[in-house]
Structure formats: structure tokens, C-alpha cells
Design a binder for these strands. Structure first.
Length: 215
DNA sequence: AATCTCGGCTA
DNA sequence: TAGCCGAGATT
């Protein structure tokens, strides 16, 4: 057993240092210390700066990883559905490498990490406890360009293909489509919380509101 | 200060 | 219309 659990501080994911020059500070901000459970993260398609507003396809998340609660290695999750299931229960049911045996026989804390959070993708940490969407509904996260006022947008796609952009829209939609309510769909099954980018300056900071700042 | 909301711009 | 984003409101 090479590494098993170090009591190591919680978080940190990477032992591989991240390449990023990171001037700045802070350490880790990246990894949400999440109390005791593993953290979650989502990675996006590679791409550094594709500058410009080339109107292309929206940037969506295509890689899902979860951190083992014991050895802190990150493990790839094979599908969005599985990822949503894990995320929903991450607190009560912390993720362990062994859980990945379900889709990757032989997986354990002794298996080396195969995904690294290097500079080839945009990485972001998800909030824990986001409910998985009702059957046939899709929760869609679209990453914004670097330098925007926020990191991403979260949308829900209804079974009929409509896009809903806020909890108010969800509520109205359910009112107008009692069918879903009868099926048991409720507003509590939706969350528009967006992930947090690991790269600290991905989102543009707003100029501080000058208030009492004396000079 | 960070996140949420929502409305509007543009291709 | 879909994709994108700013910025006021809220926490």
C-alpha cells in the first residue's frame, strides 16, 4: 500500500503541483475543504484561451471526478448520471476509491491517480448536495468565457426540451404543467448553484465599491 | 465579497 | 432563437 490515508490535511488535491504560476495567493482556494467528505469537481474541455467570441458551441462540462475520502486521489466518474448520484449523497455517503469498482474493477486507494488537474482543462469545484434532476430532466452547466462576471450558467432542460433558467421559471413551469407535479417533481429537486472555478482569476473581479475607504 | 437573478444584446 | 453576458439585488 503505497499511500493510504494520510491524515493529511484535508484537502488538497494535488500533489502534483499545479503548474500555474499562480501569483497570488492563496493557496488552495481551490479545494473546498469540505469537511469530511470528498470534494467534487468538474472538468471542462480543454482550451486555454480561445479568445474571442467566436460563436461556437457553448462550453459544457465533459469530465467528472470525485475525490476519495480516504486517500484524496481523484477518480473519474464515467457518466453525468453517476456523478449526480454521488454528488447528491456525498455528505452522507462519502466517496471512496473502492466505490469505483462498480465501473472499474480492481479500483482501490492503491491504484495511482490517472487524471491530473493540469492546465489543459478548466477545473471547477461543484457544491455538494445538489439534488439530481428528476428523471428525463437534464441539468446543464455552461461555462462562460474567462473574464466574465460569473463562471457559468445553469439551466434545466425539461423532458419536452424547453430550457428553464431560474427557479422562478421552474416554479411557473410546474404550475403550468401539473403533470410533472403529479409525477412528484418539486422545486426542491432543482438547484442553480454553479461550480467554483479553481483558477482564481477566471472570473472578473468587480471594482471594490468605495465606501469608507480612506485614502 | 460572493453569489443569485434576470433581463437584454447579438448573431 | 440560442448563446452570452452585465450588473443590480441579495445574502
Amino acid at each position: 500500500m503505497s499511500q493510504s490515508c494520510f491524515g493529511n490535511e484535508s484537502n488538497n488535491v494535488m500533489e502534483e503541483e499545479n503548474v500555474a504560476p499562480s501569483f497570488g495567493d492563496t493557496n488552495i482556494q481551490a479545494v473546498q475543504p469540505s469537511p469530511e467528505s470528498g470534494s467534487l469537481s468538474m472538468g471542462n474541455d480543454t482550451f486555454q484561451s480561445v479568445r474571442r467570441k467566436s460563436r461556437t458551441k457553448p462550453l459544457t462540462v465533459d469530465v467528472y471526478t470525485v475525490q476519495c475520502n480516504c486517500c484524496y486521489k481523484w477518480r473519474l466518474i464515467p457518466s453525468l448520471q453517476k456523478y449526480e448520484e454521488i454528488r447528491e449523497q456525498i455528505i452522507e455517503n462519502p466517496f471512496m476509491c473502492k466505490s469505483a469498482c462498480e465501473w472499474e474493477p480492481g479500483m482501490s486507494c492503491d491504484v495511482p491517480e490517472t487524471i491530473s488537474q493540469d492546465g489543459t482543462r478548466i477545473w471547477a469545484l461543484d457544491k455538494p448536495k445538489i439534488p439530481r434532476p428528476p428523471p428525463k430532466w437534464t441539468r446543464l452547466v455552461q461555462i462562460r468565457e474567462e473574464g466574465c462576471s460569473q463562471f457559468s450558467d445553469v439551466y434545466y432542460i425539461t423532458p419536452y426540451g424547453q430550457t428553464l433558467r431560474s427557479s422562478v421559471e421552474i416554479q411557473k413551469y410546474l404550475e403550468n404543467h401539473p403533470k410533472f407535479v403529479l409525477e412528484g417533481v418539486t422545486p426542491s429537486q432543482f438547484s442553480f448553484q454553479m461550480p467554483t472555478p479553481r483558477e482564481e482569476n477566471y472570473v472578473r473581479k468587480r471594482p471594490a465599491q468605495s465606501s469608507k475607504r480612506k485614502r
